[in-house]
């Protein structure tokens, strides 16, 4: 038969109640004190142990998320505004120029439309193929399912559901234009701050 003292033995949880409700109520104050002391020690000991285990687990999880990656950084710089806006008549609305040199490495077309500059994601909005730019016809064609886009990325034929997505673009602190691939803007956000750069 368990004695009253043994009520809290066992699993280290405070509420171990192996004896069920049958145990006699505690009535000896000395015992009570000892129980409280044991309780305290147990809570301190096991409590801190399980917290430690929790911390170990958290640390192990943190270990699996390295701070830096050996991947292409999401942002890259494409030059100063002067490289794209040389002034003159072609800055008027509706004049579009497509810069292809960042497509190979970053899958980005830099497009200048009037006074606006934006970074277009070279990925078809239909099923993710990479479209090609045909400067003679001034359209993008997707080789997979025949989607067609105007030079500003708006779809006009084929199965593509929406215009080509755009990346964040901004002027960095050193005065150079930076493309941020971690921010993607869809059609309805094209006029939002950050989806284009205006001069």
């Amino acid at each position: 038969m368990p004695t009253p003292r043994s009520r809290f033995l066992g699993r280290g949880e405070s509420g171990d109640d192996a004896a069920g409700g049958t145990a006699a109520p505690m009535d000896v104050s000395a015992d009570k004190q000892r129980i409280n002391r044991r309780m305290f020690l147990k809570i301190t000991g096991w409590g801190s142990f399980f917290i430690t285990m929790g911390v170990f687990l958290a640390g192990t999880l943190r270990f699996l998320f390295p701070r830096v990656l050996f991947e292409q950084p999401p942002t890259f710089k494409i030059g100063v505004p002067g490289d794209f806006f040389s002034g003159g008549p072609d800055l008027q609305d509706g004049h579009i120029r497509v810069y292809e040199q960042w497509k190979k490495e970053h899958a980005v077309w830099i497009v200048r439309e009037g006074r606006r500059l934006y970074a277009m994601y070279a990925k078809c909005t239909h099923l993710g193929c990479t479209p090609n730019w045909f400067p003679e016809e001034r359209i993008f064609k997707c080789p997979c399912h025949g989607s067609r886009f105007y030079s500003n990325g708006v779809n006009f034929a084929g199965p593509a559901p929406r215009p080509l997505d755009r990346f964040g673009i901004f002027l960095a602190g050193d005065g150079r234009i930076t493309v941020d691939k971690s921010r993607i803007y869809r059609f309805r956000d094209f006029d939002k701050q950050g989806a284009y750069l205006e001069v």
């Binding site: 033995l9 044991r38 305290f40 020690l41 147990k42 917290i51 430690t52 911390v55």
Partner: peptide, 24 residues
């Protein structure tokens, strides 16, 4: 199962130390 007082005290001392070290 009752732990001996010495063991209980050791646990109550060592485990917090472990916690402190871990937090360190």
């Amino acid at each position: 199962m009752k732990l001996r007082p010495a063991h209980l005290v050791s646990i109550a001392v060592l485990c917090p130390v472990l916690l402190v070290v871990t937090i360190w």
